[in-house]
Each structure stands twice: as structure tokens, then as C-alpha cells.
Amino acid sequence: MKVETQLAMKPAKVKTSKAAFIKKELLRNKYVYIMLIPVILYYVIFSYAPMYGLLMAFQKSYSPIKGIMEGKWIGFDNFTMFFESYYFWRIIKNTLILSLYSIVFGFPAPIILALLLNEVRKKWFKSTVQTFSYMPHFISVVVVVGMLKTFSALDGGLFNVVRGLFDLQPIMFLAEKDMFRPLYILSNIWQGAGWASIIFLAALSGIDPQLYEASKMDGAGRWKQLLHITLPGIMPTIVVMLILRLGAVMNSDFQKILLMQTAPTYETSDVISTFVYRSGILEGNYTYSTAVGLLNGMINFSLLLLANYISRRVNSTSLW
């Protein structure tokens, strides 16, 4: 109370003493601040300057010479144009469908793998399976898509050899719009399930072994233990991961889709990020594509806040 009145009475003196305090602090840790200068510059230039660049979304066109402040402001016209365009529903729909399929088919895969691994008794077998199933994670996306492409070759490509077994005609897999989603999701599972199982294995190792002992006494078999101890034990992890995944539902793997997509598959493969790339970088509609990107970023950010809020409620786990 006393301090507060002092503050109110002598603002001038407080100000100087605060400045003195900051100066003292800066001097005391001067080497730390010197260290942080490149870090701060890095974030200002490469993270915050592009955020300022987002103002372009409300302008008619971008001029590198004039900069943003001189540009002509057009309010939300770019957004309206996007909402009214033919592509709007297509890319929103594709982004969401691809995400939802990935969740439905891709999300359970690492959990199942972790559960299988958890039941292995021989340690060497477990670590062998782990080593091999983690391997695809380190293959670059260019190689994965390159493999998909060579496997789809009309002559002697693996996928068409398999089709041949069923007396089906060879097809150009990467040019078939109905094949894009299955190929994308299956190859994602192949590449990512092993690696993603690590976090669930960690959760599994946190389950109290006494629970298993006790249930054995009660005559529970391995299957019963799986249902009543193991699964409930890792449920919190599963819930958090699922909520986070749902928070990223408007995100898609830009580089993989860009590599996989061909013009005939745009109907199923064109998503927000690939659209932004084509319209912005390739066609030079900078302000329009910035608007589309900003819209996507805002939706993502809100979804993430929502996901974090829910996860805090459900699990008292928060992202930050």
C-alpha cells in the first residue's frame, strides 16, 4: 500500500529508477543479451516480418519497390473473391477429407503397433521390429514419392503387377484421381507408423507392472489385460494425441502432396497449401494467395487454441 502511494506521488522518480533498473539488468547480463541479439534478429526478421507482410492480403497488388504502406487497400475483396471462386469448396473439401481419412486410417496404426510390440516377451525381437519399422521414417519424401511413381509404372511396376494378378488392366496410378487419397494415406502409414509408435510405447512403459500381477492373480488372460489395463493405461496419451491431431485438421503435408499431384488428380489432390503455392509463387498473384494463406493460418490457430483448451479440460495437459 505504501509503495503504491509512493508510486502514484512521484511518477518521475519511479520512471528513472525503472530505467536505471533495466540498465543495471542489461549490464549485469550483458553477455547473455549479446548472445541473444542474433536470436532476436532471427525471429524479428524471419517470423515477425512475414507476419507484417500479411497486410498484403488486404491490398490489390504487391509492388516490391513501393512496399506495403504505399499499396492500394481493398479491404476484404481478396477474401470475397476466394469464397466466390470455383476452387474454394474443392480445396477446402480436399484438405478436410484428406485429413479425416488420415485420422481414421492413420491414427490407430501406431497405437496398434505399440500394443503388439508391448506384448512381445523376447527383447531382441522387440528391438529388431522397432529398428525396421522406424527405418522408413528417415527416407526423404522425394524418395517415397519417387518409389510410388516407379511402382506405378505401366510396364512391370509393382502396383500394376499386383493388378495383373486379378486380371485388371494396368493403370497410371498417380494420374487417377481416385487413387490419390489411398496412395497418400497408405504411404504415410508405411513411412510414419513405426516412428509414431515411440510415444505410445513410452506411455505403455509407464503402466504400473503391479496391475498386471494383480490381474493375473484374478485369473485375467493376456487379452483381458490388454482391454482392462493396457488400453485404459495409455488412454490419456491417445486422447491428447488425437486432440492435437484434430487441431491440425486444416494442415496438410504440402511437400508430399505437391510431389504426388498431377494435373488429372487436382480434383482430389489440390489442397489449400498447394493452391497457395500455384497461385502465389507460380502465377504471381501475391496478395490473393496471401489472403488464402492468412485465412488458413487463422483457422489453424483457432483450431489449435480450441484443441489445447479441450485437452486441458480432459487431461489437464496443455501445450504451453
Binding site: Y43, I45, F46, S47, Y48, A49, P50, M51, Y52, G53, L54, M56, Y62, P64, S273, V276, Y277, G280, I281, Y286, S289, T290, G293, L294, N296, G297, N300, F301, L304
Partner: peptide, 15 residues
């Protein structure tokens, strides 16, 4: 904050 929101592809490219 920069982990969750950013300028995106086009403003970064122009920068």
C-alpha cells in the same frame, strides 16, 4: 507464438 502462427509461404518468399 511463432510455432503456432506465421506469415505463411508468400510473405516469407517475398521477404
Amino acid at each position: 507464438f511463432t510455432m503456432f502462427f506465421g506469415g505463411g509461404m508468400i510473405p516469407t518468399f517475398l521477404l
